[in-house]
C-alpha cells in the first residue's frame, strides 16, 4: 500500500489553493483512473474462476481437455447442465436448503442480538469467562464434535427431522463476536443517555442498538445463511431420507461419477453456486449498500 495512492484520492486542500484548476482536475482524474484500474484488475481476478467454471461447463469434453485451452467455448453446449440437473432432484434440494437456511438464520439473529448485546453493554458475573468459553467453541474442529453431536440428535430423537438440520445452527459464536464488536463501537454517549436498568437495556437494544446495527445483522444473517446453504457433511449424517437432502449433496452425487469430465463437474458446480449467487444479487443492494451507509452520526 503506497501513500501515493492516497494522495491521489483527494488532492490536499492547501495544494488546491496553490494549483490551477486544470492541474487539480488532472490529479483528480489520474487518481480516479488509478482507483478504477486497480479495482478492475482485482475484480477480474476475483471473477475469473467463475468465468472459467461457467465456460468449461459449456464445453464439450474434447474441448475442455485440450491444451492450450480455448478461453471462449467454440460451441456452447447445454447438455452438461441437463445431465447435472438430472443427476439429482435439484428443485427439491433447493427448496430444502432454502427452508433450512432461512430458519436457522432467523434463529441465529435472535440469539445473536441478545447475547452480543449482553457481552457488549452489560456488566455481569462471569462475563469474561463465559466469553472465552464461547470463543473456545470456535476453535474445536467440527469434525471432532461431529459424532458427539450426532449422539445428541439421536437422544433428542431428532434424527431425520428438520430440527436436526436447523436447531444446532441457531446460535453462532462468530456472529456474537461480530455483533459484540459493533455494539462496542457504538458511541458511549448514545448509551449513557439511557438510564441503566434492566428494562431500559431492552428498550435501548430494541430501539437504538438493533436499528443501528441492521447492516451488521444482515451480515450475520448472510453468513449464517451461507453456512447452512453450503453444509454437506452434517445433513448427510443426520438425515437418511433423500427427501430432506440439501443442495450440496447434489453436487457430491454428481462429482463422484464425473471422472475426468471437468465440463460436467463445472456444470454441477455452477448449479450449486447459481441460486445463492442469484439470491445475493437480488439482496445485495440492501446488504452492501446498507453496510456502507452505517454512518452512526450521518
Amino acid at each position: 500500500m503506497t501513500s501515493q495512492s492516497y494522495r491521489l484520492l483527494a488532492p490536499r486542500k492547501r495544494a488546491r489553493k496553490r494549483q490551477g484548476t486544470w492541474q487539480l482536475r488532472l490529479a483528480r482524474w489520474a487518481g480516479l483512473a488509478l482507483i478504477y484500474a486497480l479495482l478492475t484488475l482485482g475484480a477480474l481476478t476475483m471473477v475469473f474462476p467463475f468465468y472459467w467454471m461457467v465456460s468449461t461447463a459449456f464445453k464439450s469434453i474434447q474441448e475442455a481437455l485440450i491444451f492450450p485451452p480455448t478461453l471462449v467455448p467454440t460451441e456452447w453446449l447445454w447438455s452438461n447442465f441437463r445431465e447435472a440437473w438430472e443427476a439429482a432432484p435439484f428443485p427439491r434440494y433447493f427448496a430444502n436448503t432454502t427452508f433450512m437456511a432461512s430458519a436457522s438464520t432467523l434463529g441465529t439473529l435472535i440469539t445473536t442480538v441478545l447475547a452480543a448485546y449482553a457481552f457488549a453493554r452489560m456488566r455481569f458475573f462471569g462475563k469474561n469467562v463465559l466469553f472465552i468459553l464461547f470463543m473456545a467453541t470456535m476453535m474445536m474442529p467440527f469434525e471432532v464434535i461431529l459424532i458427539p453431536n450426532f449422539l445428541i440428535i439421536k437422544t433428542l430423537k431428532w434424527y431425520n427431522t428438520f430440527l436436526a438440520l436447523i436447531v444446532p445452527w441457531t446460535a453462532s459464536v462468530f456472529g456474537i463476536f461480530l455483533l459484540r464488536q459493533f455494539y462496542l463501537s457504538l458511541p458511549k454517549d448514545l448509551f449513557d443517555a439511557a438510564v441503566i436498568d434492566g428494562c431500559s437495556h431492552f428498550r435501548f437494544l430494541w430501539n437504538v442498538a438493533v436499528p443501528l446495527s441492521v447492516p451488521a445483522l444482515i451480515t450475520v444473517g448472510i453468513f449464517s445463511f451461507l453456512g447452512s446453504w453450503n453444509s454437506l457433511l452434517w445433513p448427510l449424517i443426520v438425515t437418511s431420507n433423500p427427501e430432506m437432502r440439501p443442495i450440496q449433496v447434489g453436487l457430491t452425487a454428481f462429482q463422484s461419477e464425473a471422472g475426468s469430465y471437468y465440463n460436467r463437474m463445472m456444470a454441477a458446480a455452477t448449479l450449486a453456486v447459481l441460486p445463492i449467487v442469484a439470491m445475493f444479487l437480488v439482496a445485495q443492494k440492501q446488504f452492501v449498500e446498507g453496510i456502507a451507509r452505517t454512518g452512526l452520526k450521518g
Binding site: 434463529g107 435472535i110 440469539t111 441478545l114 433428542l156 430423537k157 431428532w158 434424527y159 431425520n160 427431522t161 430440527l163 436447523i166 436447531v167 441457531t170 437418511s240 431420507n241
Partner: peptide, 14 residues
Amino acid sequence: PVPPTATPKPVGPT
C-alpha cells in the same frame, strides 16, 4: 426466543 430444545418433535426411525 423460546429455547428450541424444549420441544423435541419425536419422529420415528426410517
